[in-house]
Amino acid sequence: MDSTPVGKDGTTPERRATQTTLARDGDSTVIAQARHLAAGFLTRVQSEHGLPVSRRAMDLTQLVVSELVTNARKYAPGLVLLDLRFPGGLVEIVVWDSYPVVPIVRAADAGRVGQHGLEIVMAVAQGFEGQREPVGKRITARLALADDPDGDISGRPPQ
């Protein structure tokens, strides 16, 4: 018989530590709440699982969360859902909103004011995808928790 404690929600302590969710109306406080949730989640992953989470990974995770939640709040009315997961050595950031159009990265333009959020996310993420859902869309970004030992600041191979 398995003696692992199970919470009221049916999850084990390990499962609760490796995923967390925020569902909020897209009011002006949701971005700060999402950044705070991301920092707390990575702190728990680090302390409860003994995994390295670099300062850079913490900062980049909060940046990506901020950019994705900002876009959801800006373009989609109503609810914004943020789901943070830990599938191994990565943090997976999933943002759902009600707007069905999946964003595309625009060509770099130093003269353009604003609308660089997705470019930033793509520059720092190890993985990125946008997927239409029956209602709205889901955007997923994956970031490494530890710094690249070769010092590659983006975690991506040089191009």
Rank of each mutant, 00 (worst) to 15 (best):
4 T>V: 13
124 V>N: 13
133 E>S: 06
143 L>H: 01
12 T>K: 05
72 A>T: 00
95 V>P: 04
103 P>V: 09
127 G>N: 14
143 L>M: 03
7 G>C: 11
33 Q>A: 15
44 R>W: 11
82 L>V: 08
149 P>R: 01
109 D>N: 02
88 G>L: 06
1 M>P: 14
46 Q>M: 11
4 T>G: 05
127 G>Q: 15
157 P>C: 02
68 L>W: 03
32 A>F: 09
36 H>S: 14
54 S>D: 10
95 V>E: 09
133 E>T: 07
53 V>A: 00
14 E>V: 06
98 S>A: 12
39 A>H: 13
67 E>C: 05
142 R>Q: 01
26 G>T: 00
120 I>S: 14
11 T>Y: 09
109 D>I: 05
123 A>G: 13
137 K>S: 00
89 G>K: 10
132 R>K: 10
137 K>W: 04
135 V>C: 07
15 R>E: 07
77 P>H: 00
152 D>K: 09
116 H>L: 13
29 T>S: 12
148 D>R: 03
81 L>D: 13
21 T>V: 00
116 H>M: 10
24 R>M: 08
53 V>L: 09
130 G>T: 07
123 A>Y: 09
39 A>N: 09
105 V>D: 12
91 V>L: 05
65 V>E: 00
142 R>M: 07
66 S>Y: 12
119 E>M: 11
159 Q>R: 02
86 F>G: 15
91 V>N: 08
145 L>T: 06
